[in-house]
Design a protein around this nucleic acid. Structure first.
Length: 664
DNA sequence: ATCCCTCGAGTTCA
DNA sequence: CTCGAGGGAT
């Protein structure tokens, strides 16, 4: 026989061959047991000769233990899709696309929306190097070893690949496999998964990839990128290429020459979906031509060239046991339906928000009523309606409270507003809410200050506002129940650390009406210190591009209140930083921050939307018409009336290369 | 005056 | 995630 090296190589090609038979042709020639034996043999040989291990070896699908996951920043953000819940919304989507296409011909591709979790796979020179979850769309987890356990994901591309390619797809666990996994878990006395989707997303995050391998995840790919661009001229070609490279491409897809054909596909699949061995939650329609996709662009939330059509959500019936009132950070009284627990789409639902008094009246709901509920938008349960025919007279009318259930202050509901609020500024519920908000991750990020501790601090009278946090010492905290010295020390340290978070996070944490993540960033960047901001007039605030009258007045009002000025003075005295942290990312590019750009004409190297994005990333603004506020007009080929107008107004005019120099 | 986009706010569950 | 309101753009 030949050398170990050739043995290893022939084993690898044999395994790859069986893999392909199994996944692409669905005609395995050998049993799973035999397959595993081959794999084990290869593993043993490789262990003895580690120098011969290559990254694309089938054994690399089953890595060893990983130690937590590194974050992975997506090259191109993974956006979610706009949803539609009826066929007319699909037709509206079509109208928008027709308008954007402006007479040019295009097709749609209709495909299934798999109910799993999105993955992004990166190939360099044809070799799989990274597998990552979607995460928040910007950054996900690097789960490469786990992605490699998915047998239908090739470790190596074979057909005309480019240097850097990214494949996106939906990972899932087949319904049949899901049932086996749960039986297994029951046998071992472990907790079972509620549905295939949960089991897939739980599995992909497991650290031990040999367990992941046993769970037999699979993936249906749906997109191919080359670098940061679309890889092919049409979406339909993506599928052809994916098939040639051995991916498990979902066969249920259709090239449609108009929206009505997409609708036919939706209707056909609705009758067939229960017979499939995987869960779907709808159909996705995409514009087929990628040049049009690029041109249509995207809103911050989703691309304008694709839409998801979702099948009606599953409903269930249950009884309304009680209505509880929650008092939030803003004093809003929110009624919550306490339901008899019922299974719905894989989770047990026991509560649902009733939003406000009007909603209760609209539903005409009484205590003890049977109600139908549904899950709209994946998780959040909604009470749809009361089943009046099930009433037997024992139901009781519900009275919306006139006093705050927490502090007994009479509640108010201003004319024209739907929310009922507790007006008492010292209401413990509001204090707790504000402290929790202050310590949230996006605000001052105080680790260890959880709801239980906050409850104790507020009820013990130790903390009445956020400034009191900085006066806490270890002894006071460790005297509380269930607080050992060590964890008390920890919390006190964390509170001290938070003094350095900087102006942006502080502003966010102060809970000024209308000022959230975005506006606190803008304000911090503009004013640099809380004193400057505090002195700003309504007019000064209103002049800031993104800020309008209502927001300006709310900010001004906040700083006019003595109570707030006092709070800020006390925070300052404790050493809380009131200026922009020069090291933080609040600092925007000086050349772009707050500047308004107008693009006109055709550029050589950028599409309009790509250039806009680059400008906005640097803190600039892109407007569509020239005015005296415009800072730069970027004039490309064949610039027209905008150029004339800019010249007349004396706006600085730069060309594509001028813009490029600014980017550099 | 109207349309469309963003940001903020409130909420559920594993 | 969805809804409502603020704010630009047209």
């Amino acid at each position: 026989m030949g050398s170990t090296k050739t043995d290893i190589e022939s084993l690898r090609s044999e395994i790859n061959h069986h893999n392909e038979l199994y996944y692409q042709k669905s005609e395995p020639e050998i049993s799973d047991v035999e397959f595993d034996a081959l794999l084990k043999k290869l593993q043993k040989l490789e262990e003895e000769n580690p120098e011969l291990i290559t990254p694309d070896s089938p054994t690399q699908r089953i890595g060893g233990k990983a130690e937590g996951f590194k974050p992975f920043k997506h090259v191109v953000p993974m956006m979610s899709l706009d949803n539609s819940y009826n066929l007319d919304e699909l037709r509206k989507f079509d109208e928008r696309c027709q308008k954007l296409a402006d007479g040019r011909d295009f097709d749609y591709v209709a495909e299934l929306k798999i109910d799993g979790l999105s993955l992004s796979l990166h190939y360099e020179n044809g070799i799989l190097v990274v597998g990552a979850t979607r995460g928040d769309g910007e950054t996900g987890d690097d789960i490469t070893p786990n992605a490699k356990t998915i047998r239908s994901i090739p470790l190596k591309l074979k057909d005309e690949y480019r240097e850097r390619m990214e494949i996106r797809g939906e990972a899932f666990i087949a319904k049949s496999v899901f049932r086996e996994i749960n039986q297994d878990l029951i046998a071992k006395g472990e907790k079972t998964f509620a549905n295939p989707r949960n089991s897939a997303s739980g599995t992909i995050r497991m650290l031990d990839s040999s367990v992941v391998a046993s769970r037999r995840l699979d993936m249906f790919p749906y997109d191919v990128l080359s670098g940061n661009q679309k890889a092919f001229e049409t979406h339909w070609e993506n599928f052809k290429w994916l098939e040639k490279n051995g991916f498990n491409v979902n066969p249920n897809r259709r090239l449609c020459s108009g929206i009505e054909a997409v609708i036919d596909f939706c209707n056909e699949m609705e009758t067939e979906k229960d017979g499939l061995d995987y869960d779907i939650d709808g159909v996705v329609a995409k514009v087929n031509q990628t040049d049009l996709q690029d041109e249509f662009g995207a809103t911050t939330k989703s691309p304008r060239w694709a839409i998801a059509y979702k099948y009606p959500a599953i409903q269930a019936m249950t009884r309304l046991l009680d209505i509880k009132i929650q008092v939030g950070r803003t004093g809003a009284l929110t009624p919550v339906a306490i339901l008899e627990p019922v299974e719905l789409a894989g989770t047990t639902v026991s509560r649902a928000s009733l939003h406000n008094q009007d909603e209760i009246e609209r539903l005409g709901i009484k205590l003890g009523d049977w109600v139908s509920i549904e899950k709209s938008g994946e998780i959040i349960p909604q009470v749809l309606k009361v089943i009046e025919s099930k009433r037997d007279g024992s139901e009781k009318e519900y009275q919306f409270p006139t006093r705050c259930p927490v502090c007994d202050t009479p509640v108010v509901r201003p004319d024209g507003e739907v929310v009922t609020r507790c007006p008492n500024e010292t209401c413990p519920a509001k204090i707790k809410g504000r402290i929790a908000y202050f310590s949230m991750r996006k605000a001052m990020d105080i680790e260890g200050l959880g709801s239980v501790l906050i409850q104790q601090l507020v009820e013990g009278g130790l903390v009445k506002d956020v400034a009191d946090l900085y006066a806490l010492d270890v002894k006071t905290v460790s005297d509380l129940e269930r607080m050992a010295e060590k964890s008390a020390q920890n919390v006190v340290d964390q509170i001290a650390v938070s003094k350095e978070r900087g102006l942006q996070r502080l502003l966010y944490g102060l809970d000024i009406r209308h000022v959230g993540e975005m506006y606190s960033k803008i304000l911090a960047n503009h004013f640099r210190s809380i004193d400057k901001l505090s002195e700003a007039s309504v007019e000064e605030l209103d002049e800031i591009y993104e800020i309008g009258k209502a927001v300006a007045e709310s900010i001004h009002e906040y700083f006019r209140l003595e109570r707030n000025q006092d709070l800020i003075r006390r925070l300052k005295r404790s050493g809380v930083k009131m200026e922009v942290d020069e090291n933080s990312s609040v600092n925007l590019d000086e050349r772009f921050a707050g500047k308004i750009f107008v693009l006109t004409g055709k550029m050589e190297n950028y599409t309009r939307s790509a250039a806009s994005k680059l400008i906005e990333e640097r803190g600039g603004r892109v407007s569509s018409s020239v005015s005296k506020k415009t800072d730069y007009l970027v004039a490309g080929e064949k610039a027209g009336s905008k150029l004339t107008k800019a010249e007349k107004l004396g706006v600085e005019i730069i060309d594509e290369f001028g813009l490029e120099t600014l980017f550099a």
